[in-house]
Amino acid sequence: MKRLAYYIRLWMGYQRMGLVEMTQYPADTVILVISLVLREAAGFIGVLAIASAVGGLGGWGIYEICLMFSMCALVESLSQTYFDNVWGISYLVHEGRLDVLLVRPAPVFFQVLGDVMHYPALISMAIYAGVMVYALVHLGIGFGVGLLLFLAEYLICGIAINTGIYTIFNCLNFWIVQGEDVAVLVQTCREFAKYPIGAFPGVIRTIFTYVLPFGFVGYYPAAYLTGKTGSWVLAGLPLSAAAVVAVAAVFWRLGSRAYDSTGT
C-alpha cells in the first residue's frame, strides 16, 4: 500500500507539473488547442462528407459514423493527454536523456509517461464526448448502468491498445536511428479505425483486428452498441488490450536492456 501511495503521489506531482507548463505559455496553449480541434474537425468533416455523398459507408449511417468517430477521438484525446510521451522515446534514447530517468527511484517507463502531459487535448475530448452523446440520442441507445460500464471498459482497453501499439513501434528507436518514422506510419494507418473497417477487403480487416488491433479502438465497440456485432466484443476488448500491453512490455524490456546511452 505504501508503494501504491508513493506512485499516486508521484503521478499527481506529474499532473501539477503539466498544469504549470500549460499555464506558463498561454499563447502556445491556445494555438495547440485550436490546432487539435481543427485537425480532428477536418478528419470528421471528411468522413461525414464521404458518407453523405454515397449515402453511408459499409452499411453505416451518419449517426453511426458519428458514434464510431467520436469513440476513436475520445481514446486518442485521453491517450494524448496522459500517455503521449511514448513519442518522446526517440528523443530520450538518441539524446541520452534516458540516463536521467535511470538513476531516479521510480520505474523508468512510469517516468516516461509522466514527463509530459498535454492537457489541451482534453478540449477536443470534451467536444467529441458531446458528439458521442448526440449520436447515442439519435440512435435511440438508452443511457444506463450497462452503457456506462461498457464505455468505462472501452476507454480503459482502448487507451491501453492505443498507447501499447505506439509504445511497441517507438521502442524500435532502441535499435534503429529512425524508428520514430515507423511509428508515424503506424499512426497514419490508425486513420482506418475511423472508418467502418467491415467495408474494406478481408486482409485489411484482419490486420486491424489481429495485427494492429485499432478496430477495437472504435469500430468494434461502436458496432456492438449499434447491434451490428455480438457481445464477443465485451471479451475481445480486454483480451486485445492484454495482448498489446504484453507485447509492449516485452519490447520495452528488451529495448531498455539494449540501451547503452549515446556513447559520449
Rank of each mutant, 00 (worst) to 15 (best):
V186G: 01
G198C: 02
T163H: 03
A27W: 15
I165R: 08
F174M: 09
I50P: 11
A73N: 07
L239M: 11
R39S: 08
G140V: 07
S70P: 04
W252I: 13
R253D: 06
F208I: 11
S240G: 08
F169C: 10
N162R: 04
A129H: 03
G236P: 11
V217H: 01
L254P: 10
G158C: 10
L212E: 03
I123F: 09
G202A: 13
V133T: 09
T167P: 05
Y259F: 10
S79E: 07
P238V: 00
C189T: 14
F83N: 04
A241G: 04
E40Q: 08
T188D: 15
A5D: 11
V33Q: 00
K2I: 13
V247H: 09
L48Y: 01
G146P: 09
H118N: 15
G59N: 06
R104H: 14
G144W: 04
A135M: 05
V103M: 11
L98N: 10
I207G: 09
V203E: 03
L78Q: 02
Y259T: 05
I62V: 15
V137T: 11
I197C: 03
L74P: 02
I50A: 05
D115V: 14
N170Y: 05
C171A: 12
R257D: 06
S124E: 13
I204Y: 03
L136R: 03
R253S: 09
I89K: 10
G13N: 12
M117K: 11
Y6Q: 13
D99I: 05
G227E: 04
N162I: 00
T29R: 04
R205Y: 10
G56E: 05
L98S: 05
L122W: 00
G158D: 11
A5M: 11
R97F: 05
Y63A: 12
N85P: 01
G218L: 03
Y166F: 14
Q80S: 12
M125E: 07
H138L: 14
A242V: 11
R97W: 04
T29E: 02
T264K: 02
R9Q: 13
P221I: 12
I165T: 09
F216Y: 15
V133K: 06
F192L: 14
L36I: 02
D84P: 01
F174C: 06
A193L: 04
A199V: 14
V217Q: 06
V250C: 13
F169I: 15
A193D: 01
A42N: 00
F110C: 09
F44S: 00
T226L: 01
G96W: 08
G236C: 05
R16C: 02
F251N: 10
V20A: 15
L149F: 11
F110Q: 13
Y134D: 08
G43A: 03
Y134Q: 05
L113M: 14
G88Q: 14
Y224G: 10
P26Q: 02
Y7W: 08
I156E: 07
K2F: 08
G140M: 00
G198I: 12
A121P: 01
F69K: 00
H138V: 02
Q15G: 05
G227T: 12
W11M: 08
